[in-house]
Amino acid sequence: MYGSLDISTSGMIAQRTRLDVISANIANKGAILDAEGNYNPFRRRMTMLAPGNPNASSARGRELGVQVKEIALDKAPFRLKYQPNSPHADEQGYIREPNIDTTTEQIDAMEAVRAYEANVAAAEAQKSMLGQGLRLLA
């Protein structure tokens, strides 16, 4: 029965990772340079979830739960901004900005928080059931 706590934990980890990715997206909304300082706008990151949890201790635990399969790049085109005086502007005077929309990120963040809370509720239920099971012995 300890397995159920693993499942809810995997859900919480997945949702927290998702929230981390969303935070990174929002933080990098204006980042048009990469870490080395070259002109390379930040691409939006997306968290890919899949059923199953390779970190679980038991075979049954590996079947259940959820995992972050990969953090993929959003292929949507960059947003263009008219900024003719920028050193990175193209011939028409546009620079490319990250393909991040804060509204989408906010909605995504809300969904992740709610999903996290649902996992917390499942873990709480599990905890109280464990407590009741132990009280049988006392």
Binding site: L64, N119, A122, M129, G133
Partner: peptide
């Protein structure tokens, strides 16, 4: 009930998969 709990937890963990 103990077994079904893990099935339900699995469903909740995968609510956004």
């Amino acid at each position: 009930a103990g077994r079904r709990q893990s099935v339900i937890a699995h469903n909740i963990a995968n609510a956004s998969t």
